[in-house]
């Protein structure tokens, strides 16, 4: 009886597994298929030589890393200020989290589009990076974490004559490493996959990121499905790698409710 249940359970798990993984498997398989039918890497060499995928990859990586670094720094600063009651009106600031969660991005995108044009930042790295350097969900994640740390450490350091900066970055920040790791991974993954803002705020190939490039390539006559899937694989692999390495932090982060897709 027990074994029958187990077999049934594994059978159900297996069927779901196939359903969940097949589309991605299909993507990998097609990207490796040559026009003659055999296995090949030619689709990858093609998209890198004829379609500037190197550039898109670089843009995605650059924007992703800068935004992640910005979030580590700024969310930490803001979260710390909140946790140590150096800023009043915590409740109001908590409502900004709700606003950012609830306001549909399309309502702000037209003004941001006009704003970026007026500032001369349309179609530049600044347009891709500036709006995302800090996010309120990250701030509250750090705030939560810092509140669990004892204040005595900071006070002791202050008595020893350590300056504000030193206390902040040499003493508190290293202690926050677990929370910052969760934050960094989630920000990077969200940013890497983001489409709408990069799509609307840039136009030239020089600043195009991978998701935008992929969406636009579908409309080109000169690229076939295997090449398109090769491009998709390029976009998926870094995230997959991050996921496999940091699985535990990612799952912890999501269950902490700190993930906005």
């Amino acid at each position: 009886m027990m074994t029958f249940r187990r077999i049934l359970k594994y059978f159900i798990l297996g069927v779901i597994f196939v359903i969940m993984v097949f589309p991605l498997f299909w993507m990998f398989a097609l990207s490796l298929k040559s026009s003659g039918g055999g296995l090949t890497l030619e689709n990858f060499t093609y998209i890198f030589s004829a379609n500037k995928f190197g550039r898109y990859l670089f843009n995605s990586a650059l924007v992703g890393l800068v935004v992640t670094a910005g979030n580590i720094l700024f969310c930490f600063m803001c979260g710390y200020a909140l946790a140590r009651r150096r800023v009043i009106g915590e409740k109001i600031w908590f409502y900004t989290v709700l606003i950012v969660l609830m306001v549909p991005v399309h309502i702000v995108i037209i003004p941001i589009y006009i704003l970026m044009n007026k500032l001369g930042m349309y179609d530049s790295y600044a347009a891709l990076i500036l709006p995302w350097l800090v996010n309120p969900i990250g701030i509250f994640l750090i705030r939560q974490y810092v509140s669990t740390l004892p204040v005595s450490l900071e006070e002791a350091a202050r008595i020893d004559g350590a300056g504000e900066m030193r206390i902040l970055f040499k003493i508190v920040m290293p202690l926050c490493r677990p929370a910052l790791a969760i934050l960094a991974i989630q920000v990077f993954m969200t940013n890497w996959n983001s489409f709408l803002f990069p799509f609307i705020l840039t136009s030239s190939e020089q600043y195009r990121t991978l998701p935008v490039a992929l969406a636009l390539l579908l409309g080109y006559q000169s690229i076939n499905w295997s090449q398109l899937m090769a491009g998709s694989v390029v976009a998926v692999i870094p995230i997959l790698a991050v996921f496999l390495v940091f699985q535990k932090q990612i799952i912890a982060g999501i269950t902490a409710g700190a993930f906005k897709q």
């Binding site: 594994y10 798990l13 779901i16 597994f17 969940m20 993984v21 589309p23 991605l24 299909w26 993507m27 993954m189 890497w192 996959n193 489409f195 991978l210 998701p211 935008v212 992929l214 969406a215 579908l218 499905w225 398109l228 899937m229 998709s232 976009a235 998926v236 995230i239 997959l240 996921f243 496999l244 699985q247 990612i250 799952i251 897709q261």
Partner: peptide, 27 residues
């Protein structure tokens, strides 16, 4: 195998929507 299945079921969510949409427009 619990962790394995969890990771597998979660995989579509970490894939870019653009990629998913491309795959499915063919499927």
């Amino acid at each position: 195998g619990r962790t394995f299945f969890r990771a597998a079921y979660f995989m579509p969510s970490i894939t870019a929507m653009v990629v998913i949409a491309l795959i499915f427009s063919n499927l």
